[in-house]
Design a protein around this nucleic acid. Sequence first.
DNA 1: CGTATGATTGAGCCTACTCAACTATTGTGG
DNA 2: CCACAATAGTTGAGTAGGCTCAATCATACG
Lengths: 247, 247
Amino acid sequence: MPEPKADSCLITNFSHYLELVETDRQLLIFLERSERKFFAGELIYARGDRTVDLFVVKSGWLFAFTILPDGRRHVVRVYTAGDIIGLPAFAYSHHALHLEASTAGILCLFSKKALNQVFETSPRLTALLFSLVAREEVILSETLRAAIRMRPIARLAYFLLDLICRLRVTNSTMTTRFALPLTQAVIGDTMGLTNVTVSRELTAMESEGLIERFMDDIVLRDEMRMRELCDYTDRYATLDVSWFPRS
Amino acid sequence: MPEPKADSCLITNFSHYLELVETDRQLLIFLERSERKFFAGELIYARGDRTVDLFVVKSGWLFAFTILPDGRRHVVRVYTAGDIIGLPAFAYSHHALHLEASTAGILCLFSKKALNQVFETSPRLTALLFSLVAREEVILSETLRAAIRMRPIARLAYFLLDLICRLRVTNSTMTTRFALPLTQAVIGDTMGLTNVTVSRELTAMESEGLIERFMDDIVLRDEMRMRELCDYTDRYATLDVSWFPRS
DNA sequence: CGTATGATTGAGCCTACTCAACTATTGTGG
DNA sequence: CCACAATAGTTGAGTAGGCTCAATCATACG
């Protein structure tokens, strides 16, 4: 019996949460349209563009952002391998955010229109998609909490913890060291800080023994204390699938 | 032929977006468990409680919040008549937020477990539920943008515009005046300000002719200028249902 | 009438910002 | 292959906006 194409982006992603049955696998393979390379600095889509596709990041780093009236940039979310980009776009016919690549990489494309086949044929995959959007919302509300009300050092602790916990979902070998190919300006624009403050506070975190830095790599030296600093809850480790319909 | 119970909370809510077919109506009526009164100041559920129900607000005002390590409160979202509370909770078995009532009112309850019947039998309602969560996420990201990066007066403009646009969805007679039964501390805890700053800035907005205040009522006097102030986009007016499966 | 809660206003302070200079790193073309 | 330009990061000095603290006023409620 031939194994189905194992490296389909969504199959890899979804398998972390559910045991997929064969019909679900076939459906996801059928939905996958194509791959698309991107290069560092590329604008994948702009605010106002029609939402036609759903992306899954196969490799590389990207971030979604808007521009404020005064020209400053606000980064809503950073994406890395395994992340699904564009679920919130389902509610609107046009993108609310710009999407820019921070490094080179590869995206998998899925037609937005085709996704309703999931709704029609697989209640179980539907429930998973639903939960993933719900989780994004919860995470966004925790980002809000950290970015609005905490001191810069706690905001950065939150940012780093959120990233590493996300990376651990798809990469179980990930422990405390990870590459962070983002400028300090992007980090600042995510957590409501200037690049200057990011620089100062990262240095402070290093001298306090919370982190260590090597080139583009970050090592978490005292994850426990970082968690306390920003009252962190890992929202990636668990997802409640107990209520899902049977496949 | 007897009309189905017309005042079911979810039917009223969903009818704003979709033409519901009879089977969908029957399903929603079947799912509705009961009503529940609440009084001002009541804690409906606490962070950590099991997520068993989905609420729809029939009347009254509530807000969801967390407590920061230093004791301060962060309000994530304010709810009013017509709002669905608890969709993001679907991803987790326990609540991430506390829910408190600001006024007395009535909630409609739906069993979380029963919702998968929607996933199994109505792709069209499923798509709507999905879109509603997606919309919430978009709105949350816009709140983040305003609360993190804008001056206090723009944050308050955003807060008031967001509220009135939401009220207009379910109440078409709503024009520029609405009741705002929230303390300035709650407003501040939503937009990352202190009650003191809220007081000062609302006074400033009034003297600049942006708003007017009568007791608990707010009147928007120059909505255009308020929209410019915070670069507001109405996310409630439209919802892309074009891609939905047919019923 | 007294108490509790919420709103207003003033004074002073502190944190993260702006502005600016400088260093480090990366990439490109002659 | 090196020189130069462009981008990113660091560090210092001064500033200002929103915070804290505190007193007063307003309103609601038993």
